[in-house]
Design a protein around this nucleic acid. Structure first.
Lengths: 203, 203
DNA sequence: GTCTATACAATGATAGAC
DNA sequence: GTCTATCATTGTATAGAC
């Protein structure tokens, strides 16, 4: 618990009650899920009192939504940048996921919270269009792949299937990275992407 | 909620209080997660009273463990069979996942509950070696792949990487199947496995 | 904006009768 | 084995002072 405390209080310029509450919410929702986290825990970790949370976010659910809206904004920026990048499809994807990985390192809790929402149980959690995060990734991957086909680097198959192949791999890798950091050295995802591109058959 | 009721009461030969409670637990843990499910809901859905749950399973946590132990037994049997199957690696894997998919159709809730536990938040949930399910899958996939290498069908790369590639794809497909059944016609997973085997590069 | 104090429903669990 | 009735605890949320 003291580890979380450090993470929450890390940024000296954001030590106002609102931001502290937001960051505590991220850390706890990520670790324990929405239903598993109590308002009492959040305010304790943030170092504020209950009325502070209700003042800024109206409710536990309001805090939840504020966090996700914030994350959606950040994702948009990263993906817009990736759509402009030059080079071969495989390398563009490797760069994109390298950039995402950097973002994760800076804000592990936030990414984990979204990952959990996407793959974990949904009932009991406030309804939120969480798939929007994946749809945007999906669109970006398809655009990069199709550019690769256009330029004659890649053979033409279903773009939907390619997106599933790439997304499943990267999601799983993030998951592995969370559970077994030792098994996910930096080059591993790159190697796996290359493997998916190249295939297993002899040639 | 009435849908769940039907699922829970489906099997006429298992309409005893213990089994009804177990099945209600599966259905609710799968949909709402462990923390999000209350004992009251479980017994209501099962059509029993609270002391019945505490009599058979000792606690909410005891019910949780009983469910997972039961699932682990079933998994063992399916994988043991797959290890004995003949044929080429790709076809053996396709058959294996076809068989798993059948098992899922018969017991959607149970598979979903395990999937959620694996990918969702873990704190607040009783500690259980949930990764055992994936380790066993991992071992089976590696064994089948390595046999394929031995027989000269496949090129030799890291078996760990191959297992990640296959597992990530199948997990993601199950996830898709749950969220968007219309996007996952029966042959889709097979097509995706072939794509992963064949690769995206021109040749 | 932030606090103390508290309202009030829901939770996991049990005692004791049958 | 299964019930009714009830416990202590914790949950979200708010009123009202500063």
């Amino acid at each position: 618990m003291r580890n979380l405390m450090k993470e929450v209080h890390a940024r000296a310029d954001e030590q106002n009650a609102r931001m502290m509450t937001l960051r505590a919410g991220i850390a706890l929702f990520a670790e324990k899920g929405y239903a598993g986290t109590s308002v009492r825990e959040i305010v304790e970790l943030a170092g504020v009192t209950k009325p502070v949370l209700y003042y800024y976010f109206k409710s536990k659910e309001g805090l939840f939504r504020a966090i996700l809206d914030w994350a959606a904004e950040m994702q948009k920026e990263v993906l817009a940048e990736a759509l402009d990048s030059p080079g071969q499809a495989l390398n563009r994807l490797i760069d994109l996921f390298e950039k995402i990985h950097e973002g994760i390192r800076e804000n592990r809790g936030l990414y984990r919270m979204i990952h959990n929402l996407f793959f974990g149980p949904t009932q009991g959690v406030p309804s939120y269009d969480i798939e929007l995060f994946h749809r945007r990734m999906d669109d970006t991957i398809k655009a990069i792949y199709m550019k690769g086909v256009e330029q004659g680097e890649l053979r033409e198959v279903s773009a939907d299937d390619v997106a599933v192949l790439i997304l499943s791999l990267t999601d799983f890798c993030f998951h592995l990275d969370h559970l077994h950091p030792e098994s996910m050295n930096p080059g591993r995802l790159e190697g796996l992407l290359r493997l998916a591109f190249r295939g297993l058959e002899k040639r």
